[in-house]
Design a protein around this nucleic acid. Structure first.
Lengths: 332, 332
DNA sequence: CTGTTAGCGCCTTCAC
DNA sequence: GTGAAGGCGCTAACAG
């Protein structure tokens, strides 16, 4: 492995000059620049990143900490993040917390040890509650999850509003007994629940909500339970794509059709939602945009550490499909 | 930020002793060990990874290079990889190539610059064709894609066999004119195509295959085209989850039901495949296991650089569902 | 068992 | 415009 002094020797200059052309500095004769470039080429020299990082104290690395990359929302976000990172010559380290604050803490510590340029974090509930930018030695931008009280750069959906609009739409369709299954472990689930409650209250309707771990299986189990009860709800709503999938599974197992037996809706416009049954009405998130906005915020924060805190709130978009078409002659 | 000499000072020992307890070395009195530990605790000292890496020449980092993390197969693989990496105190750098050999080359160069401990690579077709372990300064394990001729650690599905078994199953169901849409840009798509051709030939049937970029949209377009032709095939098969999704979309657009109008099958047991229509027959890949096996191979290779090359071939599992139930009275 | 010391490969003043 | 030299923070000989 060639190193800088080999290049210097071959180009018959000092290591300082090599370093200068590497850094793209001015103050180097075009002639020496060429000689250095040739030497670099000839030796297939590549600077040692470990040495460079030790010296320069910067890593051009960003950490991406999410609950589970298999959640399609985070998959898409991660892709946007990696795309932008690539364009900015930065690498991304991927971390899954499984909503476990300890694991999250471990990774946050790791980010400090890695001396990353910045972190994109989808915090667990406890981490969000006590989040302070000043607790970290690196810039952090929150994604998907953020409280009203949190002072931090963040990119989120208008969760409460989106849920409110989705529920209001269902109510306008004629649904009354609307059950809401939402993720228990995240701010997102809570905020969407809030929107649900507000919408129902606005129309004088009783709520029937249930918090579950945000997994397909938990949602399926909860829905199965709910369905088994004597009085079926008019409609079922899942607060994210995973939960919605669980609901569909439960309905299928129970041999219940939508919208014939009950209405169905949810969040996240995943590819399959338009394919199952008559299509499922969803509140779509601009997922890739969310990821892109997040890393843009982060890059700006890295460039300007003391710029004012910013929050980007993206709007969900209702996609009406067959699953929420109220059936005539249904019980009220 | 405290550093090792601060710890040494506070514990009243030399930096060497601190380094020793950090490394978990024996040859340190329990007493000094305690003093060092206390000092570390008191100062909240954490070793600087850049310095450590420069000195030790190891990074405990692995690169994961795939075509697109949004492909559910790679999503799942990446999760397995990250899990195992976490357990082994290693970090993973995520890279998407989009099947672009240049981008792939860029990342492979980056891996060298990063001096990673190892790389998990799902190579593009050209990269696979010229792949030589000796071209890399770090261990590489191939995942999902591997030729017969390639000499490298690898974990793959028994692609040709799985396709053969899937097609043979369809033929036994009574299907004859089976069209196969497969990914053009990967070894996997080619091998599955091979299995398809073999199965059809074995039964004296004519093939009708089409290679497309492995995206939902490309598959949808190709299938739409195919469907528009005067003579509809008996059955449609997609060589992976993305392609299968495209097929379903095309059928839906054309208002064609499965299995009523034609049979349908594919690869990858994605959650939605059991939810759309009567469920779709698929060849399931043990995705998480594949990821796990891959990183295990890599970790072993890192530990024993000169151990013999190993290839792990996992078997696909047929999951029969409603989409491939031959309809009575159909044309032959 | 413990301490001293010489680098790991690079960047960057500081002189010239 | 160029070169010499001193670290960045840590590990691992080598002495003692």
């Amino acid at each position: 492995m060639a190193q800088i002094k080999d290049v210097a020797k071959r180009a018959e200059v000092s290591v300082a000059s090599v370093s200068r052309v590497l850094a793209g500095h001015t103050g180097v004769t075009e002639a020496t620049r060429q000689r250095v470039l040739e030497a670099i080429e000839a030796l297939d020299y590549r600077p040692d990143l470990a040495a460079r990082r030790l010296r320069s104290r910067r890593t051009d690395t960003i950490g991406l900490i999410v609950s589970d990359i298999r959640n399609p929302f985070f998959t898409e976000v991660s892709r946007a993040v990696e795309d932008m990172a690539y364009q900015n010559r930065m690498r991304v380290i991927l971390c899954n917390t499984d909503e476990d604050p300890d694991k999250e803490g471990f990774y946050l510590d790791l980010m400090r040890d890695e001396n990353v340029s910045g972190v994109i974090l989808s915090p667990t509930l406890p981490a969000l509650a006590r989040f302070r930018m000043s607790d970290y030695s690196f810039p952090v931008v929150l994604v998907d999850r953020c409280d009203r009280e949190t002072t931090a750069d963040a990119v989120v959906l208008d969760n409460a509003d989106s849920a409110y609009r989705l529920i209001t739409y269902l109510i306008k369709q004629g649904y009354r007994r609307i059950a809401f299954i939402h993720g228990a472990a995240s701010a997102t689930g809570r905020q969407r629940h809030e929107g649900y409650v507000t919408a129902m209250a606005t129309h004088g309707l009783e709520t029937q909500a249930q918090a579950v771990p945000a997994t397909v299986e938990a949602a399926r189990a909860a829905a199965s339970e709910l369905i088994r009860e004597s009085s079926l709800p008019d409609a079922l709503v899942g607060s994210n794509g995973l939960i919605l999938l669980g609901l569909v599974k439960a309905l299928r197992e129970a041999n219940l059709q939508f919208p014939e037996h009950l209405g169905l809706a949810g969040f996240d416009d995943l590819p399959w939602t338009q394919l199952v049954g008559p299509g499922i009405t969803v509140m779509a998130q601009p997922t890739y945009d969310i990821g892109q906005a997040t890393i843009e915020l982060l890059l700006q924060r890295i460039a300007h550490p003391s710029q004012p805190v910013r929050r980007v709130v993206l709007r969900g978009e209702l996609r009406e499909r067959g699953s929420s078409v109220r059936q005539k002659g249904s019980a009220n």
